[in-house]
Amino acid sequence: MIRVVRSELTRLGSPSLLLGGIGLMTFFGLLATVVVFVTAGSGSATLPGTQNITVAMLEAPDGMFAGLQTFAGMLGIVALVVWAMSATTDVSSGLIRLLVQAEPRRLLLLGGKIVALVAFTCAATLVATVMVMPMVQGLANSAGVSTAAWQPHLVHTMITGYFHLTLCILLWGVAGLCIGILTRSAGISIAIGIGYLLVFEGVLGMLLRSGQKWLPGAAFKAIASGGSADMAFTTALLLGVVYALAALAVAATTFQRRDVTA
């Protein structure tokens, strides 16, 4: 397994993935935080599946994470793209031929890829968080948001905030991996991911109404926020794990059985 992970991490060091993954996640993290603080209370910082952020929410002990948590889906889409691209590029470049020939245990290959992508995603989320945090105090001051409640539990809030955000982003990544393996196309995977987050889950939520909270996007967002009014963190996490296991089962079965014809 270690061999497979090291090999995968070497390929993840590709400049395009580093810039695309870590760079985009940091950019969206900064953008989300700026937007949330600048528009706090105006009601304009909403996307499908997000809520209006009030000044009171920003002044809460975990207010520093409000931007990242509110737009966790957006960061999740970046992870979805990176994970999907990691799977589809192996196919489109033909690299899968070399990988499967060198290590015929396909589930080991997939497991190694997942471990490497988890490490990559944790690092990318950490970079995004570390880049955002120093900026938050200045944004709060300029927006007239009191940060008095932040200080007593600063380290604890940062650690739990990072933990919740990373879990959410990882779940989006797993979804991306599954879609990537199924479709073998980076373009289709990205379209499905963005289409689901921005359109499909919203429409599905309107149809299901009370059942909306059980949908993947809502559950993942609840995880990012450490729980929501509709769903406790533990419930959301369990639901997220169920979704992830289902996606991994589909991905593993497909990857194990499918012919390597690329």
């Binding site: 070497t10 390929r11 060091g13 590709s14 400049p15 395009s16 590029t89 470049s93 033909g94 690299l95 899968i96 031929r97 070399l98 020939q101 060198a102 290590e103 015929p104």
Partner: peptide, 17 residues
């Protein structure tokens, strides 16, 4: 697998590496 090396249908690499 460890005793076999292969080039199948052209070379395949990560282009940016």
């Amino acid at each position: 697998a460890a005793r076999v090396g292969a080039l199948v249908e052209g070379p395949a690499f990560v282009p940016t590496l």
